[in-house]
Amino acid sequence: MHGKPHVKVEDLTIAYRGEYVFNGDGFEVEGPGLVTVIGPNGAGKTTLFRAIMGLVKPLRGRVYVNGEDVTGSPGRAGRHIGYVPQLAHVYRGFPLTGRELVELSLRLRGRPPRLHVPRGVRERAERYLRAVGAERFADRPVSRLSGGQLQRILIARALARETPILVMDEPLSAIDPRGKEGIARIIEETARDKLVFVSSHDPIMFLHRSKYLMVVNRGIKGFGSPEKTFRLELLRHAYGGSVYMIEKCIHVFER
């Protein structure tokens, strides 16, 4: 892959049962850097991320990643982007260790059968498990991990694919305040040389680290530098009346 990591979304139109989540929306970003996506529950953050990953086929519109059209094709999108899904989308009822999850995920490209784990894959998994501070609990079954521990495993799994772009859906959910700072720092470091999208209900953690801020609420309501985009009237528009938390954030941000 050469050049800067780059994502362009054009005329994105997605509807469920006749109700539009996006209708002709678009944006373009170039990395490296952090893109923070905020918006209330049901705003369409996950839907936007799944569209970028090729997991949702839009009614209309195209998604280009590093110049390649990846619309509706997770296999193609995944060559450029590592994905950290929302925690609740991961099934934890089957015995599997965090390490297995990372190692297995690294071997899905290429031809089957994939019966053994090559040494290179084992080492790479180990390296990224350490990088996110997950080596202590990597050999426990995922069913016995706390939400924050599993979140670290998922981040390691995405990082280990060594893609120039990452999409992380609410990586701070289910994490206690101290853990949040730790993970936010890992994400910040990652964004030094990669293009990283995060969604969050906790914009304080990411605002001062972000290159772009995107406000989503059934469409992209605002997009640009955090200083320009994080304005009260825009957030009121996006969140409706309930911007008490956000007002507090603004003070933090302005300091």
Partner: peptide
């Protein structure tokens, strides 16, 4: 979802 994006 992850499996699909990882190439399966």
């Amino acid at each position: 979802d992850f499996a699909a994006t990882a190439g399966l």
